[in-house]
């Protein structure tokens, strides 16, 4: 089935089985292997990408449902010679061990900081009618859809906080 995706600013036309998840389309059909398959059931967040500005689990959606959509993967967020502020902060703060969850963590955090800028509350926000300050508890709660098997969580939170402070 013909599906058009705009990925990291480049238009791609795919002819794929409707069963193909967005994650498999990225990895197997387009060679964009930065997005990782962890659980393949929407629980670990390793497959997180940004679609039309919002972070989603690419393993739990079909590529054909996204015909015409704009997708940003970790490859579009930055490259080794041109890291995003979050990527640089993950390196500086040692926000990973094995690195498998890191592309998902960074895609997720990139969109998460935008959610905070837009005033979205979280489960740990005291007054949900107004916005929230980005405390460590807020970062942890908002990043709860991204698991890290190495448990690098303290440094992940630190990296996100440093990157957020830098861009504030």
């Amino acid at each position: 089935m013909e599906t058009n995706l705009e990925i990291n600013g480049t238009r791609h036309r795919l002819d794929i089985d409707p069963r193909t998840t967005l994650l498999d389309a990225l990895r197997h059909h387009l060679g964009l292997t930065g997005s990782k398959k962890g659980c393949d059931h929407g629980q670990c967040g390793a497959c997180t990408v940004i679609v039309n500005g919002r972070r989603i689990n690419s393993c739990l959606t079909l590529a054909c449902m996204h015909d015409g959509d704009e997708v940003t993967t970790i490859e579009g967020i930055g490259q080794p010679d041109n890291l995003s502020a979050l990527q640089a902060a993950f390196v500086q703060e040692d926000g990973f061990q094995c690195g498998y969850c890191t592309p998902g963590q960074i895609c997720s955090a990139t969109a998460m900081l935008e959610e905070v800028r837009n005033g979205w509350p979280s489960h740990v926000t005291d007054d949900i009618a107004s916005g929230a300050e980005l405390t460590d508890a807020e970062i942890s709660e908002r990043m709860s859809g991204n698991l890290c098997r190495c448990a690098a969580y303290p440094n992940i939170v630190e990296a996100i906080r440093k990157a957020a402070e830098k861009s504030a």
Partner: peptide, 29 residues
Amino acid sequence: LANDSRVRRNWPVLSRALLAGASGQLRNK
């Protein structure tokens, strides 16, 4: 729904119930 200003102001239990479930990625979908 969770982030709608009217829901947050007038029916906060609905926002809180939604924010207590799943993850940011899942709630976006």
